[in-house]
Amino acid sequence: MVIIVGSGAGGAIIARELAKDKIPVTIIEKGPYIESKDAFNYYDVYNDDVDLLTTTCIGGATIVSMSNMVRALDEELHEYDIDISKEYEYVENLIKVHDLDDSHIGRGTQLFLDAGKELGLKTLKMPKAIREEDCIQCGKCAFGCPADAKWSGKDFVDEAVEYGATFISEAEVTEIIVENSEVKGIKYIKDNVEKSINSDTVVLSAGAIGSALLLRSAGIDAGHELFFDPFVTVGGYLKDINFNTEVQMAGLVIGKDFVLSPHFSTFTFEDESIESKDILSIMVKTADDAKGYVDDDGDVVKINTINDIRLLAEGVATAGFILEKAGVDPSTISSTVYRGAHPGGTAPIGKIVDSNQETEIKGLFVSDASVLPVSPGKPPILTILALSKRLSDYLKN
């Protein structure tokens, strides 16, 4: 039997792939099993110094993601003899990654795309895993899809259970059982009762923070070199744009050191007289220098370098030019506070895990954003899915 800890992108696809081939699988999820529309209630809270967007529930952060699916880190992974081109193709076909139909490109997104092209920027539609026939274009992608129109890890967990996998929710793993440098199972608490499951194969997919803490409990010094995608949202006033009801992040501008995507946020304005329907805003996201870490209490410590700040400033300036070209009143342009998403790098390939994502403890694997060797500066979900598909094939063999 294979034990999978966590039900985000990595854990979900491994569970599906193994259960589909009749391999016994048990999935342990710390959070509850919920409906997608309720996901906004399960955002995690960190310390006051870090505004990091993660969730604890079935599907992990995928359930509140924008379902953006881009390939990342191809060349960087080649340095570790990892080629996931076939896995990318498999996953893209499986979850039907595609550019949104024009019927789901709203006016605000189209203005973003047109302005980017006029400014000579590399501009394209964002590849997504969204079912247009179900999408009601409500703008609530980051709250958990009320129409269940986008892919999330929950889809794969449900499939895995249909194939015969066991899913245990609201269960916190407290210990990795290790004997003679080999994994023997896990201990967990559910309903205030400690239980255990024996297995010689355990996959940690609890996220960059959760997996790092579990690795430490097993004696592996993980949790350093933490990165996340630093971002701010820059917006301004454009009367009756109604961008707040569009599919979010449906466009993309790729800069040398940053990416931009149309993303609604009311936090761009402190002036309560400005209505949500009159805001057009853009997310600015950069790669990260990975100078953060997870402390022993599970708190995230983020250290920003001069390079982090410089890249973000370049992206913000470009976003301002796009907004003005799109018709936004330049005197109203402002920004959110600095935030973060997609934490990773706490158990990187080549340091904490090998090219098969196995730790120094035989049978103990990691498959989530923890294993990414550097910050991609792009949405990492597709890369995590491809790496995890590769790991599922390795475990089968």
Results as ranks from 00 to 15, higher is better:
V247W: 05
P379Y: 15
G340D: 06
D329F: 12
K117S: 06
D83A: 05
I177D: 12
G236K: 06
I241R: 01
I279L: 12
N198V: 15
G345E: 09
S273R: 10
G340Q: 04
V301K: 13
L52Y: 03
I95H: 06
I58G: 09
E92G: 04
K154A: 14
I58P: 06
V5Q: 05
A39Q: 01
E159L: 10
K86G: 09
V247L: 07
R216M: 08
E272S: 13
I333K: 02
D48P: 13
K277C: 11
G60V: 05
D38I: 07
K96S: 15
K351Y: 15
R71D: 12
G10I: 08
R16F: 07
D240E: 14
T55Y: 11
V366Y: 05
A171W: 00
G139S: 10
K277F: 12
F264A: 04
S281T: 06
I220P: 02
V374F: 10
V173P: 02
I303C: 05
Y43T: 07
T318N: 06
A171L: 03
V173Y: 06
Y188V: 07
G315W: 13
V259N: 03
G255T: 13
D74M: 13
S331C: 09
P373A: 08
K154T: 12
K239D: 08
S370H: 05
Y237H: 05
V25D: 00
A39T: 03
